[in-house]
Design a binder for these strands. Structure first.
Lengths: 354, 354
DNA sequence: CTGAAAGCGCTTACAG
DNA sequence: CTGAAAGCGCTTACAG
């Protein structure tokens, strides 16, 4: 017998779901006893308990989460506010968050906001009205804050890949560490003249990745290959940078380039390849983002830094749950480790490095 | 005075939100009168009504949506189930849906499911427990159905960019129409030898786009330029196709290529350009998807078909709301119009076409 | 025009 | 071990 068969048609002809009252009646006990049996609470004859559970199962009973929330003062829902309609960052973060939360019985509302303050307010209000237990705010840059006065919000908040106001709790990728890992890997492969081509200086990630590059080099007692080249986060800029390297005499070219993102790496590889420079033999290239659509389309496939965005979303959610439970959690921004995804553009096919 | 100031600290030290009881007490009326005043229901002295509303405002009162849902048998929430973790389709759809719903006071739960039936079940159960009013199911292919027995679900369901089971209601882009518009535009620009390079035949979208290509051609009394070239949805395949055209004698080359997606178009343009063939002068190229990251990175920028995914999400949500309201809505799949995004690869800068 | 009562679907002390 | 009562925060008939 299918559970649906046990459902009753109500007056309007739609299917009415069984309530705990139905279960109690069918089992011949009171509602409070039914509740206790279904929640494994208190002591009771296990024979009774099992009978009630069997009846519930048969009626396809599922407790109404809203009724539960009302008495428990806890909705088991979260709100995710994001202004990244582009989707590059939000979707992995949301997927990681949503999956981890689903396993714990909590569901997450998606609020796609542009940066119009009025719409932000609308969405925040909706989340308050729906009595979500907490909010995760996610952005597309770690140095920009959303235009909402979130501190005035009556619930725990966690920031992901977005600026974290003083005293708040945030999660961002460890840009410096990721860059350090990428450059160290290049060094371990024997490269010594490692250039850096990256995005606009106005992004804090640019400074951090540059520091990682410098630290890896100095730890290996190597000099930076000139200044970092800062420009746009685009293929076009990567291409231009590649042409610039090509114009150097062979002896003055870098033997590797660490790029600030995958698009730059893609453009750079195109420029190099067009001029007959072999990647990785002549110049090794490493990117940043592991945006698969780019990283797997380059020839050869791109070695790049993965920011572990799913994990970022997951950790943010778990921490938010702790806060909701009243556990003490330290204020401040956490930098979660990136991991290097080794493909072929760095000169190491490295099936073992995976 | 800020609203937050009016909040009271409860026993645990967290901020307690004002309830309707607080409002009623502060205004010196009964709870039922307060409710009526706040909901603009029934008749009452407008002086009383305004006084109550003022008190509510001052206390920062916001009705608890879950309590409301409990009595109204309507939660003003929706679930969005998607298996497109890739994000290409889901994010625009979700953004369009979420924005349209937010304006109507309904919030949407995001359920990122892989295709593991067990996790699908987990998420569907969560949505049922949370008593969402309806479900929108979105996928990454219009010819694949999710592995859930959704008909057994006790609520209205709408499918977006996914297969639509018999008798259900679905929304997909009008692939045939989009292709027709793209090819017609090429024809209007004077092209006559229009080839088609596209994805795997196993995708229904491939057949539909091919039909659009054929219809536009036959309406203009033009012949197809050979068979459609079917391969992968990748730059690599587009590149290979481009090389193939290059290998033809000049007089036997197409003067335009309609590509099944933007990645193919990108690869094709690269191959053409590398061989000294000018785009669009020698061969015009049009893509499909308007995936901006590709469409704006090609040289020249790509003219392509936009599937209007945001609008798809919006329409799906509005229709779902109608179903929830009990309005009659016709079963079947709706094909929503695509629109051509004219850039430069088709040979028409067309500032007026925008 | 206003308020007391009942109820939405649950859980949680508290009596028996 | 089991059940009656009260209550979570609201709304909706129904009396006054």
């Amino acid at each position: 017998m299918k559970n649906a068969d046990a459902s009753l048609l109500d007056a309007t002809g739609t299917i009415a779901r069984a309530t705990i009252k139905d279960v109690a009646a069918a089992a011949g006990v009171s509602v409070s006893t039914a509740s206790k049996a279904l929640n494994e609470r208190g002591r009771m004859a296990s024979e009774t308990r099992e009978r009630i559970q069997a009846v519930a199962q048969q009626l396809g009973f599922r407790p109404n989460a809203m009724a539960r929330a009302l008495v428990g003062q806890r909705s088991f829902t979260l709100g995710l506010l994001t202004n990244d309609t582009y989707g590059r960052f939000t979707l992995p973060i949301a997927a990681g968050l949503s999956a981890a939360m689903a396993d714990r019985g909590v569901s997450v509302f998606l609020c796609a906001i542009d940066d119009e303050p009025e719409r932000v307010r609308l969405n925040v209000n909706a989340m308050e009205d729906k009595r979500v237990d907490g909010l995760v705010v996610s952005g597309k840059r770690v140095d920009r804050v959303l235009p909402v006065d979130l501190p005035a919000v009556h619930m725990p908040v966690v920031y992901v890949n977005a600026a974290c106001p003083p005293g708040a709790i945030g999660f961002v990728p460890d840009d410096e560490g990721g860059a350090h890992a990428a450059v160290s890997h290049l060094i371990s492969l024997g490269r010594k003249r490692i250039a850096h081509v990256t995005g606009p200086r106005s992004f804090s990630a640019v400074g951090l990745r540059e520091q990682g590059w410098q630290r890896a080099l100095s730890e290996a007692a190597l000099l930076c290959f000139g200044e970092a080249l800062s420009g746009e986060w685009s293929e076009a800029f990567g291409y231009a940078a590649g042409q610039r390297f090509v114009s150097y005499p062979v002896s003055e070219r870098p033997d590797a380039v660490f790029c600030g993102n995958d698009q730059i790496a893609r453009g750079l590889i195109d420029a190099l390849t067009l001029s007959g420079i072999r990647v990785p033999q002549d110049i090794a290239v490493v990117g940043f983002d592991n945006w698969e659509i780019f990283a797997t389309a380059t020839r050869p496939p791109l070695t790049t830094v993965d920011m572990a965005l799913k994990e970022l979303g997951r950790q943010a959610g778990l921490t938010l749950l702790d806060m909701i439970d009243g556990k003490p959690v330290e204020a401040g921004q956490r930098r979660l480790p990136c991991r290097l995804k080794v493909r072929e553009s760095c000169g190491s096919p490295a099936p073992w490095a995976e």
